[in-house]
Design a protein around this nucleic acid. Structure first.
Lengths: 225, 225
DNA sequence: GCGCCGTAGACTGTAGGCGAAAGCCAATCC
DNA sequence: GGATTGGCTTTCGCCTACAGTCTACGGCGC
């Protein structure tokens, strides 16, 4: 089905719409929570947030429900929303689940990966290494996320990807403050992982990913001391 | 801290509150979807549902958002909610993830299980076998759910449990229609699983659970033919 | 007869308002 | 002096109303 307008297909910015307000409120609140502008345990009042963001209460309500569903706020009935307070046990559980999901993704990715896809992974890996070399923590973390997301995409399991996305964002919340400690080694492991995927060695990819996320957990726990 | 009223503690019905309306709407819609009263692909109009349930649009909206988040309906922007249409690929992906989560739960449960907990599992298993013997499919399915939930509880990982609960409910949607085919064998496998957990053999428990859910998948796919 | 445009209908997205439940504090009674 | 109870404030839960947007249909020009 060809367009008759002669316009290039993908280049049209699609008349960028602001999108549903609730989603933007969701993103805004998520940003405020992850940046610790809203402290754990803090009571979030709908009307306050609504006034502060310049919208009505309804989008705020819907955003809060989504935040609750995603584990960012606790919604006590007839009382309101409170920013979730992370605990040691919960961080540990999240990392356990993350290990599980990422390892499975690595296994599936190894089974499905095509040559160009592997090239993409290597490019991302190189990008991450450059970021580490330049001591750009933000870029390194962002590239890390993209790399993991790409592997998840290669796994070709939408359900798995969705769950992993949820868990990953929360893990990153705990993890980001200590990301600096774990720069070089992380990307060395990424290299090994990509090599395993390129070799179609699912067994090895699973194992490397398991060790990789396990290192993340150890780094997190060492931070406490 | 003893009560001075002299009233029996547990016997007070606690003045059964109807609970938040949005939750009841959620349950009602979920019931309508799982029972196929609302067909896959059907367009759900907020005002219609609201009128039909005797409530306003707001609780319906919030329920629909939760249903969307849980994968029961697809929410197309500025167009409305549509009952999710299950596909073969998705069922397969769900079962893959379910296998993963349940196997991990079995492993953790084997590490944590106490003697009374194991007794509880065996009791549930016996109950399930009785239901199968009596050809009571509904009871067998319900007991099956309770058994898996109990194992998940023993695993002691709240995050894992939450994800598994989501996946399980959706899996059950696909699976229930063919549950009848898989009665006796399923509970035999449950017996083996409990034995492995009782022996604290995480390796074996993982393997059995993997095979168990894999059988479920095969049963599902055979239905197609 | 065919295709385009304009208009009407319907539904969602958002705003504001009212009633009710929960928590808090002070005054009161034992 | 301590516990209780009453009222008051805060905040949520829900309803109603309005504006924006997408879809579908009918008329008009070619």
């Amino acid at each position: 089905m060809l367009s008759t307008t002669g316009l290039p297909q993908g280049a049209v910015p699609k008349l960028e719409r602001p999108g549903p307000l609730r989603d933007r409120v969701y993103e805004a609140l998520l940003e405020l929570i992850t940046t610790r502008a809203l402290r754990p345990g803090q009571h979030l009042v709908e009307s306050e947030l609504a006034g502060h963001l310049g919208v009505s209460r309804q989008p705020v309500r819907e955003a809060l429900q989504r935040l609750n569903r995603d584990g960012w706020v606790d919604l006590r009935p007839a009382q309101g929303a409170f920013v979730h307070e992370p605990t040691e046990a919960e961080a540990d559980q999240l990392l356990t689940v993350r290990t599980l999901l990422e390892a499975e993704a690595a296994r599936l990715a190894a089974a499905n990966a095509s040559a160009p896809a592997i090239a993409e992974l290597e490019e991302l890996c190189a990008e991450g290494e450059r970021a580490v070399a330049a001591d750009d923590v933000d870029a390194a973390v962002a590239t890390n996320a993209r790399l993991h997301a790409k592997i998840m995409e290669l796994a070709g399991n939408a359900v798995l990807a969705e769950l992993a996305a949820q868990v990953d964002r929360r893990v990153r919340w705990y993890y980001t403050p200590v990301a600096r400690q774990r720069g070089q080694q992380s990307w060395t492991e990424h290299r090994e992982l990509i090599a395993a995927i390129a070799d179609r060695d699912g067994q090895r990819a699973t194992e490397i990913m398991r060790v990789h996320t396990e290192h993340t957990r150890q780094t997190y726990h060492e931070r406490e001391k």
